[in-house]
Design a protein around this nucleic acid. Sequence first.
DNA 1: AAACAGGCCTAAA
DNA 2: TTTAGGCCTGTT
Length: 279
Amino acid sequence: MPLTLTDACETRVHVQDDFDLKKIFECGQCFRWNPEPDGSYIGVAMGKAARIRRDGDDVIISGTASDWANIWSDYFDMGRDYRALRESVCIDDYMRAASDFGAGIRILNQDRWETLCSFIISQCNNIPRIKKIVETMCTCFGQETELSGKTFYTFPDAGTIARLEERDLSPLRCGYRAPYILAAARAVDSGKLDLEALSKSDAASAKRTLMSMRGIGEKVANCVILFSLRIGSAFPIDVWMKKAIAQHYPDGFDPEVFGENAGLAQQYMFYYQRSGMAN
DNA sequence: AAACAGGCCTAAA
DNA sequence: TTTAGGCCTGTT
């Protein structure tokens, strides 16, 4: 009998804190995780393809225990207590309802360059098309990686994209965003834009630096800051958030009321608003 | 078929 | 400092 080498390795983790895969992957922060018929999710992140699912109080993820310890634990932000964080943003009845509804969301610590590039692509696009463009970019320029005998593609690194010309990006069909992508890739590759350094700075200066790049405005900058620079005070405002604020805070609203947890409050508001349950 | 989609840029008040 | 219109492309 042949040995079964595929799927040989899964790691089971007991999780007591908020951790809802559907909410984590569908609250708008990432573009490369997709649901499977059995309720698991398959995605590619941090240079690896993975499958993850829940089993009661446990989370089961492909890979070794050290993959979990070295990669996924941080990716899923397991170092923070989301039940406590969730309580901290309940400043009124509306936020209580929004955070109850969104309980289980976690803010991923994603790759900085991938996040920057993905949210440049996101501008004035809907989610299916964002995902399609990102996926095409990975199959064209990423590296092969395997999971259960299937081939997946990693997100291409900035250096790879930096060496391309605009015409090389035409298969992506990303329109006017192509030059923005190239400019960002070249800035990251050359070190002119040092995202790791930005992660050690404050929200205001990170935002200023990001917005000095062509094609990066306030919304994209805030998404990058929140979803990859680990600065929790960032508060991205898109069309859904504008609706939420107009409906629930007609007299004005300052995200600073949430302090360092404004970004998580934003995720609850966004997810609640988009669900249609907030009305 | 015209309008719109998880913004950004520029020009003009 | 705020506002309108254009922008690639795909979908409705």
